[in-house]
Amino acid sequence: MSSPRGPLFSPTRIWALSVNTLTELSRMKIFYFLLIFALVVIGNSFFMARLSFEEEFQMLKDVSLGAMSIFTALLAILATAMLLPKDLEDRTTFTILAKPVPRYEYLAGKLLGILLLLAISIAVMTGLFLLVLWLREQSVLADIRSQQLPPDDLANAIASVKAVTFNANLAPGIAIIFVKAALLASLTLMISTFASSSIFTMMIAIAVYFIGHLQATAREYWLEGLTPQWWTKPALAFIALLFPDLQAFSLTDDIVAGNPIPFALFTQTAALGLLYIGVYYLLACFFFSNREL
């Protein structure tokens, strides 16, 4: 169905807006944080060389995935919080919305741009992490091969090294990091549609981030009636209903420790993440639809 302004929802326009958002963010030199990540991963791997190879690989995975979680969460919140205020300040919003671009498409383009940025960042960080892990594995294997071991012992030693290096569960773990970051971006976008400044948006989003990690505890206390005072029950219910359960997306800590993630659990966790993203986007559209610009 078309209107005089064109189709109701134009993927081409959204794509154009998202690419533009990505370019804009790239010009803000946002990718420089990848250098810090590289320093953390490479520096960490040199420092860890004094540990046993099992410890070294475990540390490398812990530190790399932990840093990946921190950087993507920060990137999702900080970059998204700056988008709308910057467009308003540059008056880009007026130029775009004066053209036949509905506000919901504008927001979809912005969100997709951020998701692209997060996907590229995670891909680069994953590539770097896997490269360093592979290099360290090769270094340990070369060391083992240089020792004159009997063939059986050599095969066992190589198998032991390979067993603790790469793990198929790392892939869903990294995917969950992306889903969590995308959720945070969507949430921050929603906040920024009614916020008065980017600082306010950041503060609220960071507060939601911390409370979101405690939401599951609040929910448990509320539903199990573990409340000492009468007024805590409605307070806990409010927290449980209003905030997202971010602990549901903190699976990487256990995955990196060797806990396998079943496929059904992975898909259901990702589906919950997509549900959050969708609802926060719809609410963002609702708040932004009548906002005075």
Binding site: R219, F238, L265, Q268, L272
Partner: peptide, 25 residues
């Protein structure tokens, strides 16, 4: 947001249980 919270509550409880069974949390 509160209505969404109420709607997703059973999903979250179900997922929480699944994650705990699988050794998470």
């Amino acid at each position: 947001l509160l209505a969404f919270g109420a709607a997703r509550l059973p999903l979250e409880i179900h997922l929480d249980r699944l994650q705990r069974t699988a050794g998470f949390r």
